[in-house]
Design a protein around this nucleic acid. Structure first.
Length: 583
RNA sequence: GCCGACGUAGCUCAGCGGCAGAGCAAGGGACUCAUAAGCCCUUGGCCGGUGGUUCGAUUCCACCCGUCGGCACCA
């Protein structure tokens, strides 16, 4: 899908790696995930393609890990079957949302296994991994080791009876499973035993200094919350982290004597960015192509910029651990930016895929069943949690859709295209001499490309969309001022000139909205009498030639009335939440 | 408990050293091309609290209160 439209005059194309967080294949993702990590990189990638940059946008489903094995056991299927089924569902949702991945794969591919094992081996050889034996919780009935949060018991601090081994949900304190009073396995209810187990650890302290240097150099363009998080960990001093688990579902450890252990999900998942890039290259018949985004030159400089779009819960993996792994491996580009988003909340509560709320947020398959992808993308972007948690409510969704997307932008387009049909026979009129207000309007449309472009490049996607909407607002004001429906009776040439001017702005909006609202932008492109893809256009003002005949338009978006919305939301309440664990 | 972010109009959110902003909601008006959409005007805020720095603080600093997040085997 790496389209390379006309390179903009005088611009040297960049290599832009758009790395998107890997969804955990435990079940469908919801709107919060889409707002946090999936829609933003798509906007970013689409914009850069229109700028003529070489964009590689990769991701895939994270298929391994304990939660999937537990869910699979419960359903009586294999972990592979469950993960693959969920992967297909996630991929389908992403397709319908219009996410333009160059490759959306999984962590089950041969190439991913190979690259992960190579990474492991290289880090081991370089002395960045070590073995250590530690006690861990073991469920004698289920005959498996338990992650901390699969041990439950009474909180020693507050007496809460259902505290988890990693944290007490009641008082919020961080716990160790051995702290729990009357511990029990979440899987079988049995009393867990303590057993020693040997694992490999990533020696993060060895990277402390290099990471600090890198952060100092790079963080000028990072979001404050990301820098704060990373600096917090660095100030506290990094600790080694286990990167293997007692599991049979994961990438095997490439050493003898570790057949009953696997590489842990977070270690292999981040390697997915690299292995997916390689898979993409292989699939297009140019196996070396991935290097153009990844491999440092002789002076150690990165070939372009790598962006990692994640939710804030993923910051440590992408801004500390993965950079450390890359440093240890050597020769590969470190992240340029990790534009992590905050969370989308529902009535102030963090959205979790594992808990049910009476009025909850829809999962993506449901949302896409009920609403147009562009309406969803619009809401998630105009209300994006870029600098803090933002709130989702159905009222707000309806209002943003009806009063902003439909009324301001959709209506501006529709009133103009309809007017062209009814009064000008559907033909773009020939303009007369431009009045000063026409020039001002056109100049504003041209200037918006630079404004929005700067905002998108700074990953201020919400601001960019606000700027696009502001242009639509300015167009509405221009139209009311110019009132061609009035001047038509007194000065037809003036009316024609006003309409021509306004249609040029619509022509600009078709390009400006393309990264944000890919479906309606394409629709509008066709209403403007053009064939081909709007997404292949360069990011610049595009004339709409006079005398062109335009097809009969339909409204780009539809309003959601109260009754309809209530009915749709009511349906969500009746459904039960799918199996699965929070990612 | 420790660390961090946030607290701005009824609602959702911008702004972050120099007269408080937008959209929506509320009230009024002119228009009719348009999905009763769009446009104009008005109302509406001790910018969480208390101190401090400064000629000047919503903006910088300290403390307090509140919300959320992190605290390394949840990804």
């Amino acid at each position: 899908m790496s389209r390379h439209p006309t390179t903009l005059p005088g611009r040297h194309p960049d290599y832009i790696l758009v790395s998107v967080a890997w969804p955990y294949a435990s079940g469908p993702r919801h709107l919060g995930h889409a707002a946090g990590a999936y829609v933003p990189p798509d906007i970013f990638a689409r914009y850069h393609r229109m700028m003529g940059d070489h964009v590689l946008m990769v991701s895939g489903s994270d298929m391994h890990g304990t939660p999937i094995t537990v869910a699979a056991d419960r359903l009586g299927v294999s972990a592979r079957e469950l993960a693959e089924e969920n992967h297909l569902g996630i991929a389908e949702s992403f397709r319908r949302l219009g996410l333009s991945y160059d490759l959306y794969t999984t962590t089950l591919t041969p190439i991913h296994y190979r690259v992960t094992q190579e990474f492991f081996t290289r880090l081991l050889e370089q002395g960045y991994l070590f073995q250590d034996t530690q006690p861990a919780m073991y469920d004698p009935e289920a005959q498996r080791f338990l992650p901390d949060r699969y041990v439950e018991g009474t909180c020693p601090h507050c007496g809460y009876a259902d505290a988890r081994g990693d944290q007490c949900d009641n008082c919020g304190r961080t716990l160790d499973p051995t702290d729990l009073i009357n511990p029990r396995s979440k899987l079988s209810g049995a009393t867990p035993e303590t057993r020693d187990t040997t694992h490999f650890f990533l020696d993060l302290p060895k990277f402390q200094e290099r990471l600090q240097t890198w952060v100092n150099a790079e963080s000028g363009h990072w979001r404050p919350a990301v820098l704060g998080f990373v600096q917090g960990w660095l100030n506290e001093g990094l600790r080694a982290r286990a990167i293997t688990r007692d599991l049979d579902w994961g990438v095997p450890i490439p050493l003898e004597g570790f057949e009953d252990k696997r590489i842990y999900v977070w270690f292999d998942a981040v390697i997915g960015y690299l292995s997916a890039s390689m898979e993409w290259a292989e699939r297009r018949g140019d196996p070396e192509a991935w290097k153009r985004w990844w491999v440092l030159d002789a002076d150690g400089n990165a070939p372009g910029r790598s962006y990692y779009f994640v939710g804030k819960d993923n910051i440590p993996f992408h801004a500390i651990i993965w950079p450390a792994m890359l440093m240890g491996y050597g020769g590969l580009a470190l992240p340029y930016d990790v534009p992590a988003n905050e969370f989308l909340t529902l009535a102030g509560q963090k959205l979790s895929s594992s808990r049910t709320y009476t009025a909850r947020l829809p999962f993506l398959p449901e949302a896409l069943e009920l609403f147009d992808a562009d309406a969803i993308r619009f809401f998630l972007t105009i209300n994006a949690p870029e600098s803090r948690d933002t709130d989702f409510s159905w009222d707000e969704f309806q209002r943003r859709n009806n009063d902003e997307l439909v009324a301001t932008y959709g209506n501006a387009v529709h009133r103009l295209l309809s007017f062209t049909q009814s009064r000008f026979g559907g033909v773009v009129p020939m303009p007369g001499p431009l009045a000063p207000e026409d020039e001002v309007m056109l100049e504003r449309a041209r200037a918006t490309f630079e404004t929005v472009g700067d905002q998108i490049e700074a990953v201020r996607l919400r601001d960019g969309l606000l700027s696009v909407m502001a242009l639509a607002g300015a167009l509405n004001r221009y139209l009311d001022e110019a009132a061609p429906w009035k001047t038509l009776k007194t000065d037809p040439e003036r009316a024609a000139t006003s309409l021509w001017t306004a249609l040029q702005v619509i022509s600009a909006l078709r390009v400006l909205t393309a990264p944000y609202l890919p479906f309606s932008a394409q629709q509008l492109h066709e209403y403007l009498g053009e064939k081909g893809s709007v997404h292949a256009l360069p990011w610049m003002f595009r004339d709409l030639p006079a005398a062109r005949r335009l097809p009969t338009p339909q409204p780009l978006f539809r309003k959601l009335d109260d009754e309809e919305l209530a009915g749709l939301v009511g349906r969500l309440d009746e459904e039960t939440v799918v199996t699965g664990e929070p990612i």
